[in-house]
Amino acid sequence: MSGPDETSPDETGRDQTPKAGSEETHGAQAAQGPVPPPEPAEDDDAANLPARRGEERLSEPVVRTGMFGTFGSSDTSGYGRLQVRRPPPIGSPRPYGSYFDDVADALDTALAGGFGDAIERVVADRGELTFHVRRERLPEVAARLRDDPALRFELCTGVSGVHYPDDPGRELHAVYHLLSITHNRRLRLEVSAPDSDPHILSLVGVYPAVNWHERETWDFFGIIFDGHPALTRIEMPDDWKGHPQRKDYPLGGIPVEYRGAKIPAPDERRHYS
């Protein structure tokens, strides 16, 4: 999900460094000093031409309108008609760069050629590799990633959820970060589920460490991990209603009272997004 976000004509006039397949990596290469920026991708693929990119952008739904969080007749900012669209989901083309190709190839071998079935999309961005995994295939992919000698991602450092209400059919994402101590590599797995069917298969059998993380993700987002031994609330009180970190759950603050003024709670204030 990278790519420059053109929110307004000349708002972000800063340097647009190329993002896809960037050379900034963890680990081994970091010690070599500042890395020169990569050459712009010289592909004749029409997908990268500005006109094509513009069509992609305009076909995305609008996620925000206006500026400063004001709407209606009181909005004198002049930005009332501004429409911000959701950034289009990108997939990185091969070659991904650094160790990412090795990981993808090794996983393909481990899945006996089923890489394309299990992985919907690969994003290699800002020095990190993300596999968007189909949720039915998640435990199998995770088991291969853990056990295959060329992969050996022994540690799963955790699961977290992200709620994208603007992405119908794929609202709830669960993000797993894996770490390979043997090969000194990192990987991210991302699984999505719709709000209407928020079930994702649990990885407790593969990585017992995610036990509490899955409970936390259930607590905060409502993602039900099938196969989890004890999916209960962990951070909120046991009888709490709702899943607090979803975008449709209010922040829940109270107005701040001063002498002579009352400032609304943080989620109701003016904002500059």
Binding site: P244, Y249, L251, G252, G253, I254, V256, A265, P266
Partner: peptide, 12 residues
Amino acid sequence: SGGMFNNYAIVQ
């Protein structure tokens, strides 16, 4: 007073 955490989780 609830401090900087003006939200659902903290008693104000």
